[in-house]
C-alpha cells in the first residue's frame, strides 16, 4: 500500500519531502542510497512545481505517494499546475566552459538521469508523474 504526503505549493513545504521519503523508505526496507536518489528527485520536482507551476496566489496541493515494487522504490507525484512534462524539457548546455555555463537549470537534468523510470501523463487537469528508482 502506498504512503501519501500532501504538501502546499510553498518552498517551506518542500522541506517536508525529505522526512517523508526517509521515514517511508525505512518502513519499506529500502536501501539508503536508493532513498537518497528518490529524495533528490522529489525535492527537485516539487521545488520546480512550486516555482513555475502556478500563475495565481491561491494554495494548491502537491500529492506525493511512495511504494515499493519488488526491489524498486516508486513514487507518483500529482499536481494541478501548468502542464509540464519533465521528459520533454530542454537540456542544459553541460559542455560549456565555466564562463559560459548557466548557473541553474540542473534540477530536471538530475531527475532524468537519477530515475530509472519516468512516466508522465496529463489527465483531468493534473500532471501525473510516476518515478521509479531501482534498488
Amino acid at each position: 500500500m502506498a504512503q501519501t504526503l500532501t504538501i502546499a505549493n510553498t518552498e517551506a513545504a518542500v522541506i517536508g519531502v525529505r522526512d517523508f521519503v526517509a521515514t517511508t523508505a525505512t518502513a519499506l526496507g529500502i536501501a539508503d542510497a536508493t532513498a537518497e536518489r528518490m529524495t533528490l528527485i522529489l525535492e527537485e520536482l516539487a521545488s520546480n512545481v512550486v516555482k513555475y507551476g502556478f500563475d495565481d496566489d491561491t494554495r494548491h496541493d502537491i500529492e506525493i505517494s511512495l511504494w515499493r515494487e519488488d526491489e524498486s522504490f516508486c513514487a507518483l507525484m500529482v499536481d494541478d499546475g501548468r502542464p509540464f512534462d519533465p521528459l520533454s524539457a530542454g537540456e542544459p548546455d553541460l559542455d560549456a566552459d565555466l564562463e559560459e555555463r548557466g548557473i541553474g537549470g540542473l534540477g530536471i537534468h538530475l531527475v532524468r538521469n537519477m530515475a530509472d523510470g519516468l512516466d508522465y501523463e496529463r489527465t483531468e487537469g493534473r500532471n501525473r508523474l510516476t518515478i521509479r528508482v531501482a534498488g
Binding site: T39, L40, E44, L98, R101, I103, L106
Partner: peptide, 20 residues
C-alpha cells in the same frame, strides 16, 4: 556532505564563476 541538490550546485557555480 551527505547530499546536494541543484540548489547547492547553483551556489557552487556562482562561487566558481566569481573566483574565476
Amino acid at each position: 556532505v551527505a547530499f546536494i541538490s541543484s540548489l547547492g550546485l547553483r551556489s557552487l557555480m556562482i562561487g566558481a564563476k566569481e573566483l574565476r
